[in-house]
């Protein structure tokens, strides 16, 4: 119990750190600002002959994508913490691993929420045509987001345990970018070939985007979706399966990874990293 509380406080400290140092502050704002610029230029375009504003379609999708990116930052942070010995430190302290994991969830999820707000609030001012004046919109946003985090953060932790260095983390970025490209974030997925449509629908990214659109877009916009439906049940189903898989696998993978951590493994990785620099 103490460890959970301590982990929670640790998460808040990390969150504060990430919003008080210039480097990280820059990265918190860089993407949202770029996205907002893109949205600004898209604001008068519409999607095909449907008459829906492309910008209005894109904003919720981008929110969904950003939420899914929590997976990537979770994984990167875990790898980085393994490399510099933070994880080993947690292991050397009673209940330190529990506290560590709680803190990661708090800091990654908290950072994500802040990033979403940075994008959403100005976005609402730039883009017209969003249906946000009903409470249902915010309720849907909330459950999609929560379920999305449950689906993506454990997977991120697993990936972070599998990749041993920041370098191999870089390799993971490519397939993720590919998945984003086909996930209906920037252009409705119905414009893609059917087989790509199917791949997209296996990922949490697509469903997070769809869920966000269902929350923020007016009802008529459903016309551009697959089957002309928001498919809430399917969203819960797919994200739920990812969440269950992740939560079942995570303790096993993490325990395995943590067991192997020792002073010499951290020192070994450090030497390798130094060799690459030298």
């Amino acid at each position: 119990m103490t460890a959970i509380k301590t982990g929670w406080r640790r998460g808040l400290i990390e969150l504060r750190q990430s919003f008080t140092n210039p480097g990280e502050l820059f990265s918190h704002f860089l993407w949202p600002v770029l996205m907002l610029v893109a949205l600004f230029f898209l604001r008068d375009r519409s999607f095909g002959s449907t008459g829906f504003a492309l910008g209005a379609l894109a904003l919720p999708s981008i929110l969904g994508m950003n939420a899914a990116m929590g997976m990537v930052s979770m994984s990167q942070q875990l790898t980085a913490d393994r490399e510099d010995g933070t994880l080993l430190r947690a292991k050397a302290i009673p209940n330190g691993m529990v506290g560590y994991l709680v803190s990661k969830v708090v800091s990654v999820a908290g950072g994500l929420l802040a990033d979403l707000a940075i994008l959403l609030i100005p976005g609402l001012l730039i883009i017209g045509g969003l249906a946000v004046d009903r409470p249902g919109a915010w309720l849907t946003l909330l459950w999609v987001l929560l379920l999305g985090l449950l689906a993506t953060l454990p997977i991120g932790a697993i990936l972070g345990s599998v990749f041993t260095s920041a370098r191999s983390q870089g390799l993971m970025q490519l397939p993720v970018l590919g998945l984003i490209a086909i996930s209906g974030i920037f252009y409705p997925v119905t414009a893609l070939p059917t087989w790509l449509e199917w791949i997209a629908q296996l990922t949490p990214i697509y469903w997070l985007g769809l869920g966000m659109r269902s929350a923020l877009l007016p009802g008529e916009a459903v016309a551009v979706e697959i089957g002309e439906s928001w498919r809430h049940l399917e969203t819960i189903g797919v994200l739920g399966v990812w969440a269950v898989l992740g939560l079942l696998l995570e303790p096993v993978v993490l325990r395995r990874m943590a067991r192997r951590e020792s002073g010499s493994t951290v020192a070994g990785r450090r030497e390798k990293a130094l060799q690459r620099l030298g």
Binding site: Q17, N21, D81, G85, L88, R89, A92, V266, R270
Partner: peptide, 15 residues
């Protein structure tokens, strides 16, 4: 009940 000081540690740089 244990205390551990390893050979090299460079964690928690931001703290």
């Amino acid at each position: 009940r244990l205390g551990v000081v390893l050979q090299s540690w460079r964690d928690h740089g931001k703290w």
